[in-house]
């Protein structure tokens, strides 16, 4: 029971991070391998501001989100648009964007290491909290609640507003969306920026209960990618289920076998998905 709840709490935050990457890959069609670094930036900001002025990470999140939004928007416009324009086909854009975002990822890690090379250790709401007779750290629960809140807000936005609908249209078909008068470029930039902001907020939340350091971003990129692939690209419901599965499996392996094996466990899931359901948990067989 303890494992299940801890796993679900972790999975909730994972879902939020994957949501961010999913918007970037699903709508803007950029496989952003620097996504994890934005997560770490969110964590670094939370740590920094908390240690300096003991401001709550939740407040930090509100400051960080617009900054990350703007930063990602600039990255998309300045660095990724030229690649989209010069690409002759989908394959070339894929390779270019993978290499470019690797470059950004390394550059960001390099910058963050020079800002703060050690672990981002701080203690926020590390108090016990009781659910159905078992105790959990309050910070995990708070992070989970905010992750759900942000996720629901995004979902409402995507499904009940005009720009949200335009964004979903772009994710289905860039060409058709262009034909019905949607500004695909603008929507792609918006989705990329929004995705980056969501992941950064996820990073701020996760830093309240997991100690991160500057170079750990790539692990989170991997986890987000595994979740997206498991859930099916662009499939929100699938991603949530996948994130919860990943959270559960990781927690189970960490508690029952060895905390060092969480990555191996995530990988085992990944291999199974690739072998048996490469189209995602709920996806149809590709035609």
């Amino acid at each position: 029971m303890d494992i299940i709840i801890t796993g679900l709490l972790l999975g909730g935050t994972y879902a939020l991070i994957a949501f961010g990457l999913n918007m970037q890959y699903g709508v803007a069609r950029i496989m952003n391998l620097a996504n994890g670094e934005f997560l770490v930036l969110g964590a670094l900001a939370a740590f920094w501001i908390f240690v300096a002025d003991s401001i709550s990470p939740i407040l930090t999140m509100l400051i960080v989100a617009p900054l990350a939004f703007f930063g990602n928007w600039v990255i998309y416009k300045a660095l990724l648009m030229p690649l989209v324009r010069r690409a002759k086909n989908k394959g070339q854009l894929e390779v270019d964007s993978i290499l470019a975002t690797f470059g950004m990822s390394f550059a960001l890690v390099g910058i963050m290491v020079s800002i703060h090379g050690e672990y981002f250790t701080y203690s926020y709401l590390a108090e016990p909290f009781e659910i159905v007779g078992e105790t959990f750290a309050l910070n995990r629960i708070v992070a989970f609640c905010f992750a759900v809140l942000i996720g629901v807000a995004l979902w409402l936005w995507l499904f009940f507003t005009r720009p949200g609908m335009a964004m979903r249209a772009v994710s289905v078909s860039t060409e058709a969306s262009g034909l019905v008068g949607i500004n695909v470029q603008k929507m792609s930039a918006l989705a990329f920026a929004l995705g980056g902001a969501v992941t950064t907020m996820g990073g701020t939340l996760i830093s309240t209960f997991i100690t991160l350091d500057a170079s750990v971003g790539v692990i989170f990129t991997m986890k987000a990618l595994i979740i997206i692939i498991m859930g099916g690209v662009g499939d929100i419901r699938g991603a949530i289920v996948a994130a919860l599965i990943l959270g559960l499996v990781e927690t189970t392996v960490a508690r029952l076998i060895d905390p060092g094996l969480t990555l191996a466990a995530a990988y085992a899931i990944f291999v199974l998905v690739l072998l048996f359901r490469p189209q995602g948990l709920f996806g149809r067989k590709p035609t």
């Binding site: 660095l79 270019d96 470019a100 470059g103 990822s105 390394f106 890690v109 390099g110």
Partner: peptide, 19 residues
């Protein structure tokens, strides 16, 4: 301490200037 940054810049140089 700059080796990671240099790798990042190398990737960017390749993509944007030496494809």
């Amino acid at each position: 301490s700059y080796s990671t940054l240099v790798m990042g810049i190398a990737f960017l140089v390749i993509v944007y200037f030496l494809p």
